[in-house]
Design a protein around this nucleic acid. Sequence first.
DNA 1: TCGTACCAATGAAACGATTCAAAACTTGGA
DNA 2: TCCAAGTTTTGAATCGTTTCATTGGTACGA
Lengths: 340, 340
Amino acid sequence: MNRTASIKDVANHASVAVGTVSNVLNYPDRVSDRTKERVLRAIDELGFVRNDAARQLRVGHSRTIGLIVLDVGNPFFTSVVRAAEDAAALQGSAVLLGDSGHNASREANYVDLFQEQRVQGLLISPVGDITDRLDLLRERGIPTVLVDRLADESRFSSVAVDDDAGGYLAARHLLDTGRRRLAFVGGATSIRQVADRLQGARRAVKEEPDATLEILTAEGMTVLAGRSIGNELVERGPAELPEGIFCANDLLALGVMQSLTMTHTFRIPEDVALIGYDDIDFAVSAVVPLSSIRQPTELLGRTAIELLSEEVESRNPVHRSVVFTPELVVRQSTAMPDAG
Amino acid sequence: MNRTASIKDVANHASVAVGTVSNVLNYPDRVSDRTKERVLRAIDELGFVRNDAARQLRVGHSRTIGLIVLDVGNPFFTSVVRAAEDAAALQGSAVLLGDSGHNASREANYVDLFQEQRVQGLLISPVGDITDRLDLLRERGIPTVLVDRLADESRFSSVAVDDDAGGYLAARHLLDTGRRRLAFVGGATSIRQVADRLQGARRAVKEEPDATLEILTAEGMTVLAGRSIGNELVERGPAELPEGIFCANDLLALGVMQSLTMTHTFRIPEDVALIGYDDIDFAVSAVVPLSSIRQPTELLGRTAIELLSEEVESRNPVHRSVVFTPELVVRQSTAMPDAG
DNA sequence: TCGTACCAATGAAACGATTCAAAACTTGGA
DNA sequence: TCCAAGTTTTGAATCGTTTCATTGGTACGA
């Protein structure tokens, strides 16, 4: 066999018209059982596979959805991607994945590519401000939903997680378990997530008159940065040590934990409680299992697809912004110190 | 503007023939500067974006490559994917990514999808044995390259990493740094990778008459599994403790490290040397930075694309199997014990 | 026997690009 | 001025679907 079989070949082979073959594929009810069977056999014998390009050309749009994330290596996005793929599959669409790697020009390339492909819609976690570009896209019939970024509802739908609420949750938990002198460990507050989580933590601390919050700024959001903050803490006397530490992500928290446990000067959670953010896989298998704030990534991905479908289906769409509240995951690192 | 502009609209707007617009897009040299400029302006003014489905229908194949991996969450695959995307972009192709999640039916769905899309070729890390299916694909003009799996060269090209060599490298390194009583910690040997790495380690140990290799089987390949193996080791007396431990992956090694450092009975690397496999991000930031075996994932992805291109271009392709040798990454966890 | 519904099957037109033989220009030399 | 050779431009044909107005059949009641 040389060329791949077309619908016309199938029609000949089954002695029916091409329209009939198309009906078997798309509207099986319109076709009598006898001919349906014949057509299906022909399809099987010729190994026919529908040419999606031709289909798409005719119907005007594809069955794919473009998804551009900042970093596929980041477990947060990996999880969002997977949920989006599953949700899309349920409604018969496939997801084209693009990784911008925090790079605006890679991002632009993917937007171009997806536009050439005439994707049904676009899910994007934008690098910079490309909302103008996205407005243009929508005018040309490609709606967009922003992921992990709040949007002006007059322009776009979006899904995001409430980092302020997450920060509040973490600090409130430390307070609820009896800690009063708290510390926040984060990277630069120019990172929106860091600023929001800190703001939430502050809000919780303000609720307790006798509670304090010290702010420690790490160089980056890595294990190593956390470790060096941890080392600084160890060098203080026990009286100076905070009773509860909230780190802006789990990597920082794991670094702090390494310092504290390695030196064996302080015990977690008896002397210091420690809580992170993101609930990465490693949190549960840390030396002292790490309490953390879990972001509802599956929900994020699923909802993003839903919002996009709404926009695809209605032609004068109402944009919606959905904000999810993260969830507290309590583990040993913040266990209540034994009474007495 | 209602409908998205077609090449015909551009032609009208610039007062040229459709063929000329197409030439501007695909063979700019054939067009005079004056008309080229006019056409480009028209494209700009109308916001024209080429419809890839129409192009593809006409030329008969797409500019995309399908890539199906076992698990996008796994850093090994994430890295391969990224390298493949970059390599594909360089040659003007885009990668469609599918995540089979070790599930044969999801895998089959993606194969179907990619076949409908008429991808140029397929890169796949197969779940089960679908080589028969892939033979069919090739007959229909879609060549396949297997990733991370050796293939019968008479049927497919493939890229893989030599796990036996990696195991040898790890064990040899422990021997070279003076350790003699070695232990291998792995999951079930039914996992090919575990079996191969063990085999390589055995090969190295046989080279030293006075060296021994003890085999410890963990329940899974996780941090927790490693920790419980570590706890068993700690309970032994110091005389029974191996001098060097090779874990079949970094997660196991990190677990073992937790047990050993937590109890403070033994020191790494002075009392026990420890080496893992995969060189995940966490290896470098472990309490004691972990030596490991790094797999050349970027090379794997890039080469997979190259082999695929070869198959796409030549019509009676010679299949090639490329096997890469992994690389030893030495860190503190296997440092030479201070002389004396 | 005819007319009316209803259901199935037909096949030409359309989607938007690329291709390529043919037509229309240029240019330069005689 | 004309011709030849080279360069640009043209536009009809084509790719493989889906769509839909039309045709062909069948069943039933009058």
